[in-house]
Design a protein around this nucleic acid. Sequence first.
RNA 1: GGCGGGGUAGCUCAGUGGUAGAGCAGGGGAAUCAUAAUCCCUUGGUCGGGGGUUCAAAUCCCUCCCCCGCUACCA
Length: 519
Amino acid sequence: MADQPRYYITTPIYYVNDDPHIGHAYTTLACDALARFKRLDGFDVHFLTGTDEHGQKVEKAAADAGVDPQSFTDQVSQRFRDLAERMKFSNDDFIRTTEPRHIEAAQAIWRRLIEREEIYLGAYAGWYAIRDEAFYGESELIKGPKGEKLAPSGAPVEWVEEPSYFFRLSAWQDKLLAFYESNPDFIAPQSRRNEVVSFVKGGLQDLSVSRVSFTWGVPAPGDAGHVLYVWLDALTNYITAVGFPDTDSASYRKFWPADLHMVGKDILRFHAVYWPAFLMAADLEPPKRVFAHGWWTNEGQKISKSLGNVIKPGDLIDTYGLDQTRYFLLREVPFGNDGDFSRRSMITRMDSELANDYGNLAQRVLSMIAKNLGGVTPTPGAFTAEDEALLGAAAALPAKLRPLMDAQTFHEALEQIWVVIRASNGYVDRQAPWALRKTDPDRMATVLYVLAETIRRLAIMTTPFMPDASGAILDLVAAPADARNFAAIADAPLAAGAALPAPKGVFPRYQGPDPEDDA
RNA sequence: GGCGGGGUAGCUCAGUGGUAGAGCAGGGGAAUCAUAAUCCCUUGGUCGGGGGUUCAAAUCCCUCCCCCGCUACCA
């Protein structure tokens, strides 16, 4: 097993100033499905998520709440852990930027950049709005009634200069472009890659990477007045978690560079431009790929706190079920695109695809086995061409899904599984085992075996997306606990004669109120 | 403005030179093992408009119209 392939996948670290919402759940869910898929496919996976806990906003929110920043972040960070638990996320680690291991790593990358003269001391100047506690670019300003400059929020601005360290981003433009050129899959989807390349081609300015205006951050080594600013601190978490600054450690050598940073489209630039530049400047390897996914709308409407239409993952789980929610989010939208959450669509997929197509397939087959074959895995006779075709279609799924998962086309991966589910229902109808019961019981046993075996294979394939329900189906066909991975699809067919538990539905139909009734 | 993505059946989308596809929705039929679930057949498109290249274009070229994204230091 020395050559076991490895896979390192990360979510962004979430800013603790926010309550967990569907966007957080979506990003981590995509990573979870991919991480689980890779584990079932024999990879040694490291799946990282966590929270970003520094910055002026956190400092202020803590002050407003009357607690120290550390206690504040302890509380809020916990909400993200709770979300991960409710969503059954399988992350191997949960990193917090306030942990000593991270502060050490962030300071180490800072030192490397200073040593290589990639960071220098200068002054940050700009239009600052005290009320907003934010700097604005010249182009963002609006004109007040007297022609004075105002922030977009209407707050007065003043020209402020403060000392700041800068990263020589401008020096990395050509190297970044060369990197994109030689790594065409580094940024996905393709349209996002175009945007990034276009942005970099437009010219890069040096980047302010320290602040003196607040203290809740990682202290800059060698200059106590400065804390590391924003992204240099946050992005470094990805190497902290695999052992940086010890680049000789087993975990760093094993897992870095990361295979995939999953991000929302709003933070692509930081991951696709700044991060590889920081790393190359520090003489470290850049990650292999960054995927920027889209946003959800709610019943066609943009989601915002002011509209009050924020979608809470917990509400979806309560209303539709965990696996149903996981399935919908990954099936409804071509991954990478924006998508719309509508109750109508959620219920349609939950009922017709999960309950009717998949759940009922298992139920109808297992019921026949229970009633006609004593609840024991049937003993098959010789397989017909049609038997082989169905079994073969299910056996081919791992190979079919690998490239789709590597391209993060989760919706298409699920569609390919459903092609086999629909084929299975067609097979049931054509073989009509209920008729064979009287005319050819041996053939009926063979048909039901083929179906049970196909269901076993399907349930292994759906495990990354719907771990609970898939596990329940595998229980129903008595698949051994140690034979629930992709290798077992070919290697561990159902053993004839095994006693099966009583069939039980795993995907209930939607029982709640009709969404057309209110709203 | 510049750069980029997109405009294909009622809906969501696949399809990059060779007789228009899938799922859902609609219509008809079959079956009755099953969570009244399933299966089969079927209606439906001038592939945004116009022009061009080609034996042949949704697919290549030109042009026009419409939608969306990016155009930096809030995370």
